[in-house]
Computed example of a mutant assay.
Amino acid sequence: MNRCGTHGSTKVNKGHNFVYAWVGNSVTQCPDQCAWPFVQPVYGPKVPPLVAPNGDIGVDGMIINIATVLAGTVMNPFDGGYFQGPATAPLEAVTACTRIFGSGAYPGYPGSLLVDKRTNVSYNAQGMKGRKYLLPAMWDPHTSTCKTLV
């Protein structure tokens, strides 16, 4: 496969559409793309990779990709919803903010993040039972900026 995840729709019955999303294994599929910033990229700046919040580079990379694909599925389920640019190569709510996780992000640097002093993991969101996650920024059409959680 040549992508970390995708979404789309298909007709299953007359007048009924089925929306789907797919995310691949971040470790076996282009890890420097699909599991970044937990894996050092082949090309670009050689900054040390971040420590994965849940201790599994593949799963933590998949969480980033699931968030990206889920946002696109919800906001642009039938390729006529919210996106920027041409319909043949749309930038959706999260793909417009690729590789931005915290304030001050730039190519090769994910931005300022929270760091757990005990485990040294980087994150920007906290879930139930203290689980930590790294979630991508989303495009805010009102301010024309990528909004991050931290």
Rank of each mutant, 00 (worst) to 15 (best):
V115W: 05
L50Q: 10
F83L: 10
P53I: 02
Q29G: 03
K117W: 04
S144H: 15
R131W: 04
N124V: 07
Y123A: 02
P77L: 15
A96T: 12
Q29Y: 06
F83K: 06
P110M: 00
G111K: 03
H142P: 04
P48R: 10
P48M: 07
G81V: 11
A137N: 00
Y20I: 08
W139L: 08
S122R: 03
P41C: 12
P53G: 02
K132F: 06
R131D: 04
D32H: 06
P31K: 00
G108W: 03
T98P: 00
P48V: 09
P110G: 00
R131E: 05
D140C: 11
D79H: 15
G55C: 12
M138Q: 04
G108E: 05
I57S: 00
S144F: 11
A67M: 14
N2D: 14
R131K: 11
L70N: 10
V19A: 15
T145R: 14
L113C: 02
T68V: 10
P90C: 09
Q84F: 11
G24L: 03
C146W: 00
D116H: 02
G127C: 07
D79K: 15
M128K: 13
G111L: 03
Y106D: 07
I63V: 14
P31C: 06
P86C: 13
C146Q: 01
N2L: 10
M62W: 01
A71S: 13
T145W: 04
A87Y: 07
P53W: 03
L113H: 01
T119M: 06
V51Q: 11
